[in-house]
Amino acid sequence: MSKHVVVIGGGVAGLEAAGRLSREGLDVSLLEKDSITGGHLNRWFKLFPDRRDSSEVKDYLEGLTHANNVKLFTNVTIEKLNRDKDHFSVLTNDGKELIADAVVVATGFDLFKSSRKEEYGYGIYDNVITSADLEDMFRKGEITAADGTVPKKIGIVHCVGSRDEKAGNLYCSKLCCVTAVKQAIEIREHYPESTLFCFYMDMRMGGAYYEEMYREAQEVWSVNFIRGKVSEASETIDKKVVIKVEDTLAGRPLKMTLDLLILMAGMEMSEGGIKLAGLAGLKTGDNRFFEATDHHFGSNKSNVEGLFYAGTCTSPMNITETISHARAAVSEVVDYLKNS
């Protein structure tokens, strides 16, 4: 009888891991809390840096799981996860108990809830939206201000909920800078008359072709970059957003009225992940993400034998890195099952 592996989370990492494990001849169950798989891919429209459609990646991932007969359980959450001797018992909210020889945790990340940065007015001012809201607009094919008009002057705030002691997150989410650049270009493509401003503390464009995108945004799309942390936003009578920032390079405070303000929400450990950490006694770090046993050569290993991590439940990653990390988790699982 082939060994059974439970994969928790049906996002990029979970799909990749489940499909590959199945291909290795293992019996795989994939548990997803939503009704569909794909995780954050379902919300994102185009991906950086090549601007390909996110559905292409999703199709690849789901194709992988379908072709390999992964057993998929949707709308399930975990109520209990115990390790007895050499196997795991996973209890779900619908009362099922799955017995597994190994577990892969791929619970991913949550987007920072931007309303927590109250001074930016998300949820208070109509024309303050998040990067995810903007992707929704891209999907619908129309980018509008709250009153349905075309926004002309648009601001993008970097580091919302990342690198911010007040938000409780000291780390850099790594991908929001490039997301900001990508989204700025997309808006400019959509509305050539619009003017775009990115307000950043540092531009962190560390990835293949990211810096090139940054240059393109400046050269081709005339996106303006202003170095300064936006301190607060307020609203005018006609629902425009006024931001306050210091143009630190000019050394002067700057005030700007915008039709739309987009907040680059950072990545946080998912709520599901935090719950799971409590249930299974998994170690989390100061940043609340799962803490792998070794940052260099054990980034998939947890403090529980036979339980492995895949993807952004351990730290912010882009899709390329997530898929690589999931594949590494697969090889850890295979190794583990061979030796046990």
Binding site: M201, G228, V230, E232, E246, P253
Partner: peptide, 14 residues
Amino acid sequence: IECGGCSATCTTGS
């Protein structure tokens, strides 16, 4: 890190 958040919000600076 010289982000300027403080000077942007500053009561005196305005």
